[in-house]
Design a binder for these strands. Sequence first.
DNA 1: TCTCACCTCCCCCAAAAGGTGGAGACGGCA
DNA 2: TGCCGTCTCCACCTTTTGGGGGAGGTGAGA
Lengths: 230, 230
Amino acid sequence: MIRVMVVDDQALVRRGFALVLDNEPDIQVVAEAGTGLTAIAAAREHQPDIILMDIRMPEMDGLEATARILQTEKKAEAGDTPCRVIILTTFDPDEYVFRALRAGASGFVLKDIPPEALVEAVRTVADGGAMLAPGITQRLISQFAQKLGTGRNLAERLERLTAREREVLAAIADGKSNAEIAEALFIGPATVKTHVSSVLSKLGLRDRAQAVVFAYECGLANAGGRDVGF
Amino acid sequence: MIRVMVVDDQALVRRGFALVLDNEPDIQVVAEAGTGLTAIAAAREHQPDIILMDIRMPEMDGLEATARILQTEKKAEAGDTPCRVIILTTFDPDEYVFRALRAGASGFVLKDIPPEALVEAVRTVADGGAMLAPGITQRLISQFAQKLGTGRNLAERLERLTAREREVLAAIADGKSNAEIAEALFIGPATVKTHVSSVLSKLGLRDRAQAVVFAYECGLANAGGRDVGF
DNA sequence: TCTCACCTCCCCCAAAAGGTGGAGACGGCA
DNA sequence: TGCCGTCTCCACCTTTTGGGGGAGGTGAGA
């Protein structure tokens, strides 16, 4: 049985969704909330598997509420219920989508979807998957393809480097100085300089700064992976 | 009427999908192909709206074929049919997915989906959307959220900088030298040094190389956006 | 065996970068 | 009015970086 909570400030809308879902044999609506704040409390109390969350709400919007609920979930992590959130809204501007995904939402669907599709989305997400509105999936793919896109030809340039040189480049992309690289790779500083020089000349770069740019652009260094705690 | 081409090396599978789709009133299977090479030729000849493409095939795999078909499409761009590809396969390893998305696929679904879902996927993609298997959507979101994740707290550190300093940081993240930054911002090289110094000290960085790392990590510079043609 | 690519390290040197301290100009704000 | 933050620039200094050689050692392959 999938336990669902519906969060929307408009009681009618809320009841509508709840009725649609409750009509399914394997889905049970266990709570409803009309604001972000009450949603947080209700989530804690009823421990739903899935939360259908509107964005525009008084007191606290759905994105903020989503972030908080999933954060406390993560802290608890007693393995209770890894509650998952589907954002259900009328609009789909990019900013909302990105914020929602960052907040940890597993779905982002528009309110105009047919009821069966909503039910399907709930089941999909409860099953560990994710469900986005088709247009959003499309944009996500575009963004992703763009990021991977340029990587190709640059990665070819990367192959001109020897294994050691790639290691050095990675270290450069980590913000390390020559001395630090030497220490990290257990070689002398002079050797590091040699490697750095060949990396720069082979790739047609001038600076270690440009080397950092190159590393990020070709995917050798991945943005978002590191804590910049130099 | 949605014109579909089915590409799969197993004739039985191919016929199965074709029959399911042809049974729909708004979908017409206009071509079939058993290899990547013939798929390219058939796509050119029949100009389908949607191509269902298997990955594992003799002569040329589906990903390569997808890339080529969409590439020639792009070149032609006479506005004929902006043909779109749905990858339909038994496996979903990450590598395949990324290659598929980079090749320009608009969908990636597993062969075990129910027939109605396949039909729905075809309609969705024909309608300009995209459709991924739920698990894949999930992973795409994770990757995306990770990239956006750390950006927030770092961006706060960014706000300690003055507007000018942020400009300078952006220029640094572009791989520019102090002299180039001076030229770009119409100020003296000495001024650039001043700004660079305060950027580094305010952000707790040592190097302009570390500054580049910081810029990428906090999203000030976006990987994939630039041509590294130093 | 000889060659070649690679890794390792050295020296010297010029250029760039980064730190420190100071200074004038401008605009907002108490 | 005076204070403060910002932008602009300067001079001086140390450290780092990057380029130009050269040189020894290793292992794979012709």
